[in-house]
């Protein structure tokens, strides 16, 4: 029961013959080898699998592959280019806003989505937007600092 699904993945068109009910997470990881997007719970509760769908942060573990047909998907792999880091990635690195790093790609994608619509979020807005992402190592204060740092960097440009 394969469906042909065409969408834009990290700015490149892709066409796949997959069961449209399969979660996007596993299509990305297993079929396309994009393992930067992580499995944490499969229930939309932890945010480790966060990707951008038309610029909006979604949980890829709860996103059926069929639902992204004709849409734009961005994963962590799209952020860095030519060896350079995206400002949000650079801010995470500068603040060392991670410990084991397993939540980091999902955190960065959620933060990227936030900053795309709100270039200078307040503490309260960061808490509001980011509370769906779990960091079991408890690095939240530095992640918040990284988001502020990325916002400040963008503001200077």
């Amino acid at each position: 029961m394969a469906d042909t699904i065409a969408f834009k993945l990290n700015d490149k068109p892709v066409q796949l013959d997959v069961d449209g009910n399969r979660p996007l997470l596993w299509v990305l990881r297993t079929d396309l080898g994009l393992t930067g997007t992580k499995y944490g719970c499969g229930e939309g509760q932890c945010g480790a699998c966060t990707v951008l769908l038309d610029g909006r942060a979604v949980r890829s573990c709860r996103t059926p592959a069929a639902s992204v047909a004709g849409k734009k998907i961005q994963t962590i792999e799209a952020l860095s280019y030519n060896g350079g880091l995206h400002p949000v990635q650079q801010a995470f690195l500068d603040e060392e806003a991670f410990q084991c790093g397993y939540c980091t790609p999902g955190m960065i994608m959620s933060a990227h989505a936030l900053l795309s619509t709100n270039p200078a979020p307040s503490d309260e807005e960061i808490v509001q937007h980011m509370s769906g992402n779990i960091c079991r190592c408890g690095t939240y204060p530095r992640i918040a600092a990284a988001i502020h740092r990325a916002a400040a960097g963008e503001a200077k440009k």
């Binding site: 393992t35 930067g36 997007t37 992580k38 994963t75 962590i76 792999e77 952020l79 860095s80 880091l85 990635q89 650079q90 995470f92 690195l93 060392e96 991670f98 790093g101 397993y102 980091t104 790609p105 960065i108």
Partner: peptide
């Protein structure tokens, strides 16, 4: 550190 922010690190 860079491998963690780019998703390149393989767990």
């Amino acid at each position: 550190g860079k491998a963690f922010v780019t998703g390149a690190h393989q767990y």
